[in-house]
Simulated assay, not measured.
Amino acid sequence: MTKAAGPSRRSERSRVAILRAALELCREQGFGGVTIEKIAARAGVGKPTIYRWWSSKHAVILDAFMEHIATELSFPETGDHLEDLRGWLHSVARVLAESSMGPLIAGVVGAAQYDPALAAEFHQRVYLPTRQTTIARIRRIQDEGRLPDLSPDTLADLITGPIWFRLLVAGDPPGPDYVDTVLAAVASQRFPASAGGEALQ
């Protein structure tokens, strides 16, 4: 006789099914076409099960997005801070170049321009943690004299901005060679002492 799964196991199975369903629906229908009802139907759960863990479809989709890319976008720690930054940027470019993830990320960013709730979730859970980690790494590289003496906040814009421009505006996610070119160009420049704004605290 097969022993029935306990509540915690059933809950985890439902959680995984919900996150998988949210990602699948985003890929198939775009962010705007996804609803809690569709996620529940695809995952084989009731809407109350979803609302027990998440307040909105935004929260579900961001959880699904973050869980899917968490291991791929973690900062390496080898002791060579510049190479760690390069490796992280390569992983960002690799994720953006995926046929399923690039359009999904672009769709979430685009939808956030018209959806204050999604914008707030994305800012707090995706942008700020990534930005703070990037700036902390840039400061370490500056301490080693391997990046210009410029506001770390501005350097983060110069290094990561072109990657997002290529995805969101040009529709052409960059590859590792492009990332290396941007990083080398920024690292080789000498800027006026007054250039840049205040660093992110």
Rank of each mutant, 00 (worst) to 15 (best):
I50D: 01
V169W: 14
D143S: 12
E144T: 12
A112E: 02
A5Q: 14
P48H: 11
P76I: 10
P76W: 04
R86S: 08
S99V: 09
Q189R: 09
Q124Y: 14
L23V: 15
R140H: 11
I50L: 12
I138D: 00
L73Y: 11
V60G: 01
A120Q: 14
P162V: 01
I36T: 11
L168P: 00
R86T: 04
L89Q: 11
A22C: 11
V179P: 02
V92H: 06
I36Q: 06
G110V: 08
L128W: 06
V186E: 03
A195Q: 02
R86Y: 07
E72A: 14
L150F: 00
I105G: 05
E121S: 09
D149A: 15
T35I: 00
Y127D: 06
A97D: 13
D63E: 12
W88A: 00
H81S: 13
E37K: 14
A97H: 06
S188V: 01
D172E: 15
K57R: 06
A111C: 04
Q201C: 08
P76A: 04
R94Y: 12
A93D: 10
I105S: 03
F65V: 12
L183M: 11
W54Q: 00
I141W: 14
I163K: 03
A112I: 00
Y178N: 07
F75M: 13
A184N: 10
A187E: 06
P162R: 07
H58D: 10
F191E: 05
A21H: 06
V169R: 13
A5I: 09
L19T: 12
A22H: 10
H58T: 08
A195W: 01
P148R: 01
L62E: 02
T133H: 13
L150I: 15
G196S: 01
S188N: 09
F75R: 07
V34I: 01
T134F: 09
T78C: 04
L82R: 07
L167V: 11
R13T: 15
Y178L: 04
F75A: 14
S74N: 14
S56Q: 08
A136E: 06
R20G: 11
L147T: 04
P148T: 03
